[in-house]
Write a protein that binds this DNA or RNA. Sequence first.
DNA 1: TGTACATCAGTGAACGCGCGTTCACTGATGTAC
DNA 2: TGTACATCAGTGAACGCGCGTTCACTGATGTAC
Lengths: 229, 229
Amino acid sequence: MVRPKRNVQIMDLQSAIKETAWKQIAEYGTSSLSLRAIARDLGITAPAIYNYFPRRDDLVTALIIDAYTSFGDSQIEARDALPLEDIIGRFIAIGVAYRQWALLYPQRYQLIFGTPIPGYQPPLEQVYPSGARSMSALVSVVEALRVKGRLKVENFPQIKPGFEAGIEAWKKFGGEVEVLSISVSILIWSYVHGLVSLEISAGLQSFGLNGDELYMFALRQMSKQFTTD
Amino acid sequence: MVRPKRNVQIMDLQSAIKETAWKQIAEYGTSSLSLRAIARDLGITAPAIYNYFPRRDDLVTALIIDAYTSFGDSQIEARDALPLEDIIGRFIAIGVAYRQWALLYPQRYQLIFGTPIPGYQPPLEQVYPSGARSMSALVSVVEALRVKGRLKVENFPQIKPGFEAGIEAWKKFGGEVEVLSISVSILIWSYVHGLVSLEISAGLQSFGLNGDELYMFALRQMSKQFTTD
DNA sequence: TGTACATCAGTGAACGCGCGTTCACTGATGTAC
DNA sequence: TGTACATCAGTGAACGCGCGTTCACTGATGTAC
């Protein structure tokens, strides 16, 4: 029951380590994350890191949770900037925020939605809450459409039975929702993810495509496609 | 002017190396590709590989080109299995073949469309032809729609001028085409890529979604969305 | 206020590992005469 | 047919490198009396 000053210092180096990790990920990519390189950059020795992250994977997990939290914050903020009734506006705002965050932090985006780090298995029970929360903004908007009867889903594939447990786990972190809204959200998410991930790993520009406009076109197309009224 | 038997042996070990590389990529993922591990698996010593691939990157390049070629073959085959006039049928067939190939060879898919291998820069002049060819099936179908006046692209974002060189390069390997068809193809491709890459790196099943049905729903949705008649 | 003691963040050396690449070599294969 | 020679795919040892992780330690900080 001692450490009043110590705690401060712990926080400092702990976040300094994560900051440096992000810097290196931004520079060299997700898969060359190295404790020794981080220590070198911070001017400390590698074993010092073990006081804060007992294993390399613990650092990676912390980074992933931070990324999900930052991403989720921006999603929820974008949604809540518009009134509850403006569902389409909220949908577009979320979509725009999604791409903006991804372009701002392409390496964080890769870390959470791209190819996983080789040899790293995320501890789901730790990561799931922040991951689910980050998707809850979109899901809540789709659910709002459904509640109002404005979700256009003729012929949408039937959900297979037997996944009630997964849905319940979702609700715990993502809010009350019908399973259909989750499914539609996943489809929309995959469209968005495709556009954004291709834009990040280059390709669009080389044919004179304007990322902003193409993305807005796609968002509007989706909002028309999945809604009635 | 000697080696009649030698050539055969060269072919054998060369393709044996690539085969083993694929096996290891399938098992441990794209980024843990190692010459030494390949040699170990083949029962030869690591330097022997240098007779066939002067540097590690040359092997990676060869793998990428092989993957594009295999993928492109399946795309073109799918398209050509239906008559020229059945444009929508061809579109759906290409889409189905895209996902089938990706699910059959998820690691090859990751290698060409996913996160690149860290530290590896593909030599574009070598890779571009097979890459462009692999996309030419989709582009040719979209172009066929455009020629018939059946491409629905109201408000489709204007292509920025100054990219004629890129388009010309494309035409060399992908066939004669209007730039608009390329742009629309890229948008469609990104939707498909999002769905397929999310399905590969898991996620869909955990909410009871049936990959087959969701994908067919998406393909049909797209074909309606981008065509008139 | 002063001293003996406990804490514990960070150090420095060392471990065992796998990697890509180089180098001089060997020994089977095939050629020339 | 027999011998001397050239070729060259594959070997084995070695290089320098960076990695994650362990371990006994040190020395500043703060506590107890």
